[in-house]
């Protein structure tokens, strides 16, 4: 009955998930050896040409600046940069995660709202359907990596920096799936459901709120899950050109400047956790909503 949240429930899923995690971790250690081998073997050979396999493994899994850090290095760095520091500290990853999350959520909120409004317009006004849709699709064919720096630079030149430019990039990315999903959702009532409204002489407004909107709810949540995930991507991309201002994106950029692969990976892992938390929050709201409105799923 509660398949919507079932993915969160531990029953019967722990073992398969742990198995996959174990396989990934093992492969990861193997790749760490492979990718870090050249430099470590050079170093070891310089000191003692007779180094053992154990020395090599230890070396490849604990490099200062590895090509691929070992999982335990990332875990330790993640721990040190979150639990060990005050949240307000600029070195705390949680502080940066907060900056990214706030831009993500603001962009997501406005982007979703824009997406829903566009969809409502497209469904009701034929000319909007014809004139707007090509532009909406075209907007998404432009690579965000090309647009993001432009938005940052242009807004900075008029004195707008910080959260707003990043939120705009997020919004730019995330309105699209919401528009597409909601156009389909608002058009999903079947002819008979529409005819019923007609027999009651319902107004367009009533048809919208009593039929189109409730019918579109499953489509809305599917779109929102996609939207929040790419909204996070948008915020991180928006942080790359700014570098110094903070956020997970700027941590990744700083990491790649100074060859700090461990730092990049920590920021990546935290971004992934953040994204999952956001998607699952929406899944939770969806589950609660569908339960209240008699959803079977």
């Amino acid at each position: 009955m509660n398949a919507g949240l079932g993915i969160l429930s531990p029953k019967g899923r722990v073992l398969p998930i742990l198995t996959i995690v174990a396989i990934i971790v093992l492969l990861w250690y193997a790749f760490a050896v492979l990718l870090n081998y050249n430099r470590v073997s050079e170093q070891l050979a310089g000191v003692n040409p007779e180094y053992s396999i154990g020395d090599l493994l230890r070396g490849t899994w604990s490099m200062e600046r590895p090509v691929l850090p070992a999982p335990d290095q990332i875990a330790v760095d993640l721990w040190n940069s979150t639990a060990e520091l005050r949240v307000t500290s600029k070195r705390s990853l949680l502080y940066h995660a907060y900056i990214t999350a706030s831009a993500t959520l603001v962009g997501f909120a406005f982007g979703s709202l824009l997406g829903i409004l566009l969809a409502a317009g497209i469904v009701h006004v034929r000319t909007l359907d014809r004139s707007l849709m090509p532009w909406i699709i075209a907007s998404q064919t432009i690579p965000i990596l090309a647009i993001a720096p432009m938005i940052i630079v242009i807004l900075a030149s008029v004195g707008v920096t910080g959260l707003v430019p990043k939120a705009i990039i997020s919004m730019y990315l995330c309105f699209f799936p919401v528009t597409i999903g909601m156009v389909k959702g608002l058009r999903s009532p079947d002819p008979q459901q529409m005819d019923l409204m007609r027999t009651y002489n319902a107004s367009q407004w009533q048809i919208f709120w009593m039929l189109r909107v409730p019918a579109s709810i499953p489509f809305l949540f599917a779109s929102l899950k996609v939207a929040v995930a790419i909204s996070l991507v948008g915020a991180i991309v928006g942080e790359l050109p700014t570098g110094a201002e903070g956020g997970l994106g700027s941590r990744m950029l700083a990491g790649s400047y100074y060859g700090q692969m461990v730092q990049i990976w920590s920021a990546l892992v935290l971004a992934a956790i953040l994204g999952m938390a956001m998607v699952y929050s929406i899944a939770g709201i969806e589950w609660a909503t569908l339960r209240r409105t008699g959803g079977r799923a």
Partner: peptide, 21 residues
């Protein structure tokens, strides 16, 4: 007549709204 809601129509399928009890 429709604008005055003069009739009740019962469709071949029940045509209930699934999100309403």
């Amino acid at each position: 007549a429709r604008l005055k809601r003069a009739y009740g129509y019962i469709f071949q399928a029940a045509a209930l709204y699934p999100w309403r009890n």
